[in-house]
Design a protein around this nucleic acid. Sequence first.
DNA 1: CGCATTTCCTGGAGGC
DNA 2: TGCCTCCAGGAAATGC
Length: 276
Amino acid sequence: MPELPEVETVARGVAQRVTGRRIAWTWLARNDVVHGEPMPLCAALRGRRIRRVYRQGKQVRIDLGQGRLLIVHLGMTGRLIVADGKSAVETHTHLRITFERWRHELRFIDPRRFGGVWLTDGAGRGSKEWFGRRVPPTAADPLTISLESFRQALNRRRQIKALLLDQQPISGVGNIYCDESLHRAHLHPRTRASDLDAKTVGRLWRSLRRVLEEAVRAGGSSISDYRTSENELGMFQIRHRVYGREGRPCRRCGASIVHLVVAGRSTFICPRCQPE
DNA sequence: CGCATTTCCTGGAGGC
DNA sequence: TGCCTCCAGGAAATGC
């Protein structure tokens, strides 16, 4: 389940390996995973040099220069890996990008196909319609958002969990880090966001940033499909305090972790640390 | 506006 | 062993 820390890890890993390289050819297994330009993708990418690779929200953005941007969204089971061109191509590999004078290549693999790839004009605006599917939204980043902007974003009557999962106000938080940050802030996920006092909003702001930063340092959480750009496991899952820990003791108070559904999502809380 | 529900998709888990 | 159902969830669409 790639969220901010996973996507950040992948973007950094890919950046390290492909920045400055020139694209030789692309191999597309099925064209419904690529959106944007109706022209053949291979023709659009061949000869382009990779200027920069970075994360925005849950997107990996590959800047190709001259106003071209290749956006990769990993969805739920997507992987973007740097692989030896001679290594076996596993099933559900949808896109391969090779480079001049390099034996390695970039591969996009996504069994469930909730993810996708967009070739845009560089603006990559979330609202803009592209051939096929809309570019997923990005807004304020939880690692850099100011406390004041965070407070404004939370000034809604919605449940705090639903708000944190909504990518429109703040982009990058998914189910895992939502639950982890709420536990650290001692907040019940069904709390109305607008009911939080200034002190509590500050606590959540810090908790969210801290858990995301820690997870980035651990290379993200590998629950099922997620792997780094080198196809290796992340390590943050062993440090989860609530996510996936139903029935196990709270690491803070020892109470049994409870599973419930909030905002239509599987949710884990400590009933003692996070009273309703 | 908020919120629940459904849709897309595949693989893994659990029941029988 | 095999078949069935359910579940995981990012984000959009739909209905109340």
